[in-house]
């Protein structure tokens, strides 16, 4: 049996196991992201795949990689890929990989380090990890995954992914060797992607600052409303709340927040009173009764009456109903 034949037979034997391992890794990381409420950073459904045999053999025997033991040394026989929006999202997945107790991990490739080492080079960017399970694992479908089975995890942004796909499909897979002109264009593309990412991040950070303020007010409104209306689902997007908070954004000072956060504690009986009023017929706009914005509105109507009335975005009837609850 030649080396190649041996390689093929071993791989065929392992293929199901590798696939199962890929699936498990993919699921584990996705679950962890959900736990920290960060699953929204995934912009493409994460996927896992086992490398196809032809490219494996090419890599093992024809690309002069100089492996002692090609089967063992090739660590990306199974791979998982996560595509996120912007570079600062990558960190969340890196943390999950590094901290998971069922495997050991080593960073195989990090474009940040590559950038520092070769600042003039504009090439494929991605973060690669190779993880290995510490103990033998039996997957849900009963397949035994022996300890120390490697799995490659790739993490990249949508922009990096776009570059990788184009370069992989049209340059790398192309039979003709790419001309220097094409190489130059590809380098320009990744340079542009890097700049775009930076601009997006700057814009996002600016937005995040405003968001932080809005979220602080939103969170508190939701906390209070949940006490008054236990059926309120904190997780569904409360569009009215965010709309109203944005309208009064300029007025959301820290000082006012202090007064907001102690409003119900300092005014005995308000909580029960508001609850009774919200449940009753005296608010006809059901959109506002069902939103935690009602708490914010009542507070503003009471404490910042003039601004509240001046900027009120909905009907006069609704406004009057709200202000009358606080006797204004």
């Amino acid at each position: 049996m030649s080396d190649v034949d041996e390689f093929i037979s071993k791989f065929n034997q392992d293929e199901k196991m590798l696939l199962s391992w890929g699936k498990l890794v993919c699921q584990t990381i996705t679950d962890e992201l959900k736990k920290i409420n960060k699953d929204s950073i995934l912009k493409i459904e994460p996927c896992f795949r086992v490398k196809d045999l032809a490219s494996l053999i090419e890599k093992a025997f024809y690309r002069f990689k100089g492996y002692d033991n090609p089967y063992k040394d090739i660590t990306d026989k199974v791979g998982v890929r996560f595509v996120v929006l912007l570079t600062d999202d990558i960190e969340h997945i890196k943390e999950i990989i590094k901290n998971n107790p069922i495997w050991s991990s080593s960073e195989d490739r990090d474009f940040e380090k590559e950038k520092a080492e070769k600042p003039y080079l504009f090439d494929y960017q991605s973060v690669h990890y190779v993880i290995r399970n510490l103990d033998e694992i039996i997957s849900n479908d009963g397949i035994v995954i022996p300890s120390e089975t490697p799995c490659e995890i790739q993490i990249r942004t949508l922009l990096q992914h776009a570059y990788a796909e184009v370069s992989h499909d049209s340059v790398y897979k192309c039979k003709a060797l790419p001309s220097s002109d094409i190489k130059r264009r590809m380098a320009r593309t990744i340079a542009l992607m890097e700049s775009t990412d930076e601009l997006f991040l700057a814009a996002k950070n600016e937005l995040d600052k405003s968001n932080e303020v809005i979220e602080k007010w939103a969170d508190f409104s939701k906390d209070i409303f949940l006490k008054i209306a236990p059926s309120y689902d904190r997780k569904t997007k409360d569009k009215i709340l965010y709309h109203i908070l944005n309208i009064y954004f300029e007025n959301l000072t820290d000082q006012l927040f202090n007064s907001y956060s102690s409003y119900l504690d300092e005014n005995e009986g308000y909580e029960e009173y508001f609850q009774k009023k919200i449940e009753s017929e005296c608010l006809s706009g059901s959109y506002i009764k069902k939103s935690s914005a009602i708490i914010f509105c009542l507070f503003m109507a009471d404490k910042r009456t003039e601004i509240f009335k001046d900027r009120w975005p909905y009907s006069e009837t609704d406004l009057n109903e709200i202000t009358s609850i606080v006797g204004k």
Binding site: E281, C282, N320, E321, T323, S324, G327, K328
Partner: peptide, 19 residues
């Protein structure tokens, strides 16, 4: 009851409140 009561209350609040 109902809307009639609420409206009258609202009228009173409108003319008597501190604003």
């Amino acid at each position: 009851t109902g809307k009639a009561k609420q409206t009258l209350e609202l009228r009173l609040i409108k003319v008597l409140n501190r604003g």
